[in-house]
Design a protein around this nucleic acid. Structure first.
Lengths: 151, 151
DNA sequence: GTGTATGCAAACTGTTTGCATGGAC
DNA sequence: GTCCATGCAAACAGTTTGCATACAC
């Protein structure tokens, strides 16, 4: 991808600094969910001259352009994801061990929304975050698992 | 309710200090979701000598005893709820205007969990938080509405 | 040349913790 | 008399912001 195309896709335009290019490339290379620190580390592998503030400012710009989205939090760190599934509304299964992400359809709309409507409740926003362990992390010697609770 | 019963119910035992009693009473009086600050304010109405640290420590104790649960966040503040629905697993519709809460059944288990299983994904934890406006806040002159996004 | 994007560091937020004191049992 | 619970204030983590500088256009 041409670097101006990348800039336009990730940031919706703006100046093609080496930092922004490195950050955009890092998000494009990510296969799963990542934190701001993860992204900073990946981007610094390509260009070490990147401050955390720049990473956060870039994330804000990429969220605004729709290139990234937020998918919940882990250990108090916000999780981000470059979502490639286009327009249709859906959610994600996030592996708490390796960060891998699977898409899952939005479970609302059937029972839940009916019930909300019956209660006179207009839904303006919802969060559905499903955490667990993916096949390869279950299969013996994957990365160390994190402990999490709630059914 | 006798104060020792209240202590046992809310904290699972411990000493009946005036602060803890005020905090427990405040949670019992709450009809919806609230933040730590909300709780501190309510409790101070009854006993002004209550520090924020005590409120947070009490919340931790009440979460541990099952008297309270966390139901998502609002504006970066954690939201808590005294849930009276007993054991069965469910989630909540939270009115972003007045804090009122409706129960809603867990939307997972049908399509979503099947799909997760097919992907070799074992679910260890999930969050479902639905935000919106309740009937009375929609009906004209309720409290000022907060702005929130995401479909 | 102009103005956006940057690095640094300080500020900010909600939450947690250390420590000496006070009060419930 | 014990020892749990408290208040205060400092610490903490993640994130945001102010400001002077550098670089893409």
């Amino acid at each position: 991808m041409d670097k101006h195309d990348l800039m336009r896709a990730a940031f919706g335009g703006g100046r093609a600094s080496s930092q922004r290019l490195a950050i955009a490339a890092a998000t494009a290379a990510e296969s799963g969910a990542f934190t701001a620190d993860d992204l900073a580390a990946s981007a610094r592998a390509e260009d070490p001259r990147i401050g955390l503030a720049t990473v956060y400012r870039s994330i804000a710009a990429m969220l605004a352009s729709g290139w990234l989205e937020r998918v919940g939090t882990r250990d108090g760190h916000a999780l981000y994801l470059r979502c490639t599934a286009g327009e249709h509304h859906h959610h994600h299964l996030v592996c708490t061990s390796c960060g891998r992400v699977e898409e899952t359809p939005c479970p609302l709309g059937d029972v839940a929304l009916e019930r909300a409507a019956r209660a006179g409740f207009v839904v303006t926003r919802h969060e559905v975050n499903v955490y667990g362990l993916c096949r390869s992390c279950l299969g013996g010697d994957g990365p160390a698992t994190r402990t999490d609770a709630e059914p």
